[in-house]
Amino acid sequence: MTDRIVGILILFLALGYALEASRMQVGFLSDPLGPRPFPYIIAILVGLSALWLIFKPDPNPTWPPPRFWPVLGLVLLSLVAYAYLVVPLGFILTTTLEMTLLSVLFGARWWQGLLGALAFTLAVYFLFTEGLGVTLPVGRIFG
């Protein structure tokens, strides 16, 4: 059943993808094929495979217990927040927080996680910026 739903979603993805291709405006300066046919071929490949999935689905996967979903949501949310905060708050602060959160989710006590996270973050920050010349955000709030 899960595969049927997934198949329908993928079918919509393929249709949307093809529709978007059909809306492309092509100028005069193009090759005989243009930018549209390649996406059409992909959409057909994906669409037909999705149809097969709808007609011959695999057995349902084993989903995690319901209490895992909030945890997954929290981690994903924190990753998105990380992307937004890393430049203003800097690599060291955001990475330490993110690592601490994950450590706790993996069963560490908060002070264990915080210490481990801080030590590791500082170590890799200086290894990569000073040692290897990678630029990482310092954090706008620190000047």
């Binding site: 990380y82 890393v86 690599f91 990475t95 993110e98 690592m99 601490t100 994950l102 450590s103 706790v104 993996f106 069963g107 560490a108 264990q112 996680g113 481990g116 996270a117 590791f120 973050t121 890799v124 990569f128 990678v134 630029t135 990482l136 955000p137």
Partner: peptide, 20 residues
């Protein structure tokens, strides 16, 4: 090495890799 240290460390390296 416990998973609570190792796995977040892998994620931190991923951040650096992607940002770089």
């Amino acid at each position: 090495v416990p998973a609570w240290f190792l796995v977040p460390a892998v994620l931190a390296i991923s951040f650096i890799g992607v940002y770089a």
